[in-house]
Amino acid sequence: MTSPDLRHHGDVDAAPGLADFAVNVRVPHPPDWLRARLAAALDDLGRYPSRHAEERAREAVARRHGREPDEVLLLNGAAEGFALLPKLRPRRVAIVHPGFTEPEVAFRDAGIPVEHVLLDGDFRLRTVEADVDLTVIGNPTNPTSVLHARNDLKKLPGRLVVDEAFMDAVPGEPESLAHDEDVLVLRSLTKTWGLAGLRAGYFLGDPDTLQRLAHGRPHWPVGSLTLEAITACCEPAALEASHRFAQEAEEHAAYATQQLGDLVVVPPKAPFLLVRAPKGAREALRDKGIAVRRCDTFPGLDDTYLRVAIRPPEEFAVFVDALRVVMEEAQ
């Protein structure tokens, strides 16, 4: 039986009525041009998702990453990708923690042994020795916001699965392995484009592996609106906008780091940061109307850590002011 704490995510912390610094979605809703694309696709909901729409979406993803269409597996959200991984039937899996917990849930529920590779200090990769045939890691890693170097990732033992759900928030994506044929890369489109409620993601990998992952999925696994969203978000205009968003996010991260100072554990490379605060700070912030992500559900962290979504300076100032009051009260 999987520990229920591993299924805890930021949306649970972000209760209605609270200022949301718990969920990592960049915007509360899709931009107008994307909403228009999705609205125009509503008239097709009376028909089943078409092969043409699926091929169009796969081709858009392939062009975006310089891959072939048969190296793309479209997903009903990146979380579905984690649920498919046990189909690879690894003997034993290493999961780098602190990190997103859904991969561990999937493997443990499938009865596949999991070994933790726990990082500490600055949460950067060091030499990893593990008797495994598959390793899973996030890059940038959730919740530490660390961006690992490509070369360090390639040294991990066994087959490598990299969760790049937040890579499009890094200007230029310098450490991405999306072009590497030997790596299985998972991508999400929901964070940057405000699509968490729609579910849209994809795998990049070799065709044989993707066929194994796809085997046994239900017919029409990805809906028409998701196919349209994937196509739209991989087109040149969207990629240009995504790059601008990443540069803007980098500026917002610099502001957040400057405001919080020594409370920030490592300089953030994703649209969230890991903060060290006194015990009880999360509950105290909640009492003041602020929601942040608890971190004691991540292996390797305890309740003195908080994950905080980075927002524009005028919004982030609300969190900073509330945290200062909580820190003063704690003293």
Score class of each variant (00 low, 15 high):
residue 120 D to Q: 15
residue 120 D to W: 13
residue 120 D to G: 15
residue 121 G to C: 05
residue 121 G to Q: 04
residue 121 G to L: 07
residue 122 D to M: 05
residue 123 F to C: 01
residue 123 F to M: 04
residue 124 R to E: 06
residue 124 R to N: 03
residue 125 L to F: 00
residue 126 R to P: 05
residue 126 R to V: 12
residue 126 R to I: 05
residue 127 T to A: 13
residue 128 V to A: 06
residue 128 V to H: 02
residue 128 V to L: 03
residue 128 V to R: 01
residue 128 V to E: 04
residue 128 V to D: 02
residue 129 E to L: 12
residue 130 A to Q: 06
residue 130 A to D: 11
residue 131 D to W: 08
residue 131 D to V: 09
residue 131 D to A: 15
residue 133 D to T: 08
residue 133 D to M: 14
residue 133 D to H: 11
residue 135 T to N: 13
residue 135 T to Y: 13
residue 136 V to R: 09
residue 136 V to E: 10
residue 137 I to M: 04
residue 137 I to Q: 01
residue 138 G to T: 03
residue 138 G to W: 02
residue 138 G to P: 01
residue 138 G to F: 01
residue 139 N to K: 08
residue 139 N to H: 10
residue 139 N to T: 06
residue 139 N to R: 10
residue 140 P to C: 12
residue 140 P to D: 11
residue 141 T to S: 15
residue 142 N to P: 04
residue 143 P to K: 03
residue 144 T to Q: 09
residue 144 T to P: 01
residue 145 S to K: 03
residue 145 S to A: 15
residue 145 S to Y: 02
residue 146 V to P: 00
residue 147 L to Q: 07
residue 147 L to E: 06
residue 147 L to M: 12
residue 148 H to D: 00
residue 149 A to D: 14
residue 149 A to W: 11
residue 149 A to S: 13
residue 150 R to Q: 12
residue 151 N to R: 15
residue 151 N to Y: 11
residue 152 D to V: 07
residue 153 L to E: 10
residue 153 L to S: 10
residue 153 L to N: 09
residue 154 K to L: 15
residue 154 K to H: 13
residue 155 K to M: 09
residue 155 K to S: 10
residue 155 K to Y: 06
residue 156 L to P: 00
residue 156 L to V: 05
residue 156 L to A: 04
residue 158 G to Q: 07
residue 158 G to W: 07
residue 158 G to P: 05
residue 158 G to T: 09
residue 159 R to W: 12
residue 159 R to D: 13
residue 160 L to R: 07
residue 162 V to A: 00
residue 163 D to T: 10
residue 163 D to R: 05
residue 163 D to V: 14
residue 163 D to L: 13
